[in-house]
């Protein structure tokens, strides 16, 4: 019923944006377009590490390094959250729903003087982030997408998810975080991509 009326009225007001369209466009950062699908970009073969050989660790500038097996990781408290995601290749996807463990939970108040983290992954991928960009409820270690276990193509069994930054920062197949005193450019950051990658400031490339 509502859709029929909506169609009727949208004919009458052609050229005017409906509130829903306006709301969506306000969520699309500059230079981005919306997609319905979920494109896959891979810079190498898709790793398929068996869960019994998977672990996640926090190493580097930390008093006591941490490590979880898959079973231990899945016993940590997790959150279901819905966020918009933005890829530097210009597609954005609204309202993606994930389940994961907050990086705050993983760090668990660990003592560190580090200002930066490097996420490291199966397959050798890395990405660098200021520690403050992955703490304070802004980043998760996600293991489910849309209610299903995360597919290997999308980074399963677990990927970092930092949805407020371009998606290359949300490292697929992540196996750990290295806490660092200094910043060290990761895989794409060392090939001319922006060090921070904020889509709302359109920080795509070094120099942007």
């Amino acid at each position: 019923m509502g859709s029929v009326m909506g169609r009727f009225f949208s004919r009458g007001f052609r050229g005017r944006r409906r509130p829903r369209e306006q709301a969506e466009s306000d969520r699309v950062p500059p230079g981005q377009y919306l997609v319905d699908g979920f494109p896959v970009l891979s810079a190498g073969p898709t790793p398929r590490t068996p869960l019994d050989r998977w672990d996640f660790s926090i190493v580097g500038e930390i008093d006591a390094p941490k490590r979880w097996t898959w079973g231990e990781f899945r016993e940590l408290p997790s959150e279901t959250f819905t966020r918009d995601i933005h890829c530097v290749t210009k597609w954005s996807k609204l309202d993606t729903t994930w389940e994961g463990v907050s990086v705050d939970t993983l760090l668990g108040g660990a003592e560190t003087a580090a200002g930066y983290v490097t996420a490291f992954c199966d397959g050798g991928y890395t990405t660098n982030l200021p520690l403050e960009e992955v703490t304070g409820g802004k980043a998760w270690l996600a293991f489910a997408y849309d209610g299903e276990p995360l597919e290997p193509e999308h980074g399963g069994p677990a990927r970092l998810l930092v949805p407020h930054l371009y998606l290359w920062k949300s490292a697929k197949w992540v196996r750990g975080l290295r806490l660092m005193n200094g910043d060290e450019p990761g895989f794409w950051e060392s090939l001319g991509y922006h060090n921070e990658g904020d889509p709302w400031r359109e920080q795509r490339y070094r120099g942007d």
């Binding site: 891979s42 190498g44 530097v88 290749t89 050798g124 794409w188 090939l191 795509r204």
Partner: peptide, 22 residues
Amino acid sequence: HGMGTIVRCASCDNALIRIARH
């Protein structure tokens, strides 16, 4: 893909050459 091109060793998957054009 849209971010760049990675040439990998056929024996060990090491990234031999990485090219981004932007």
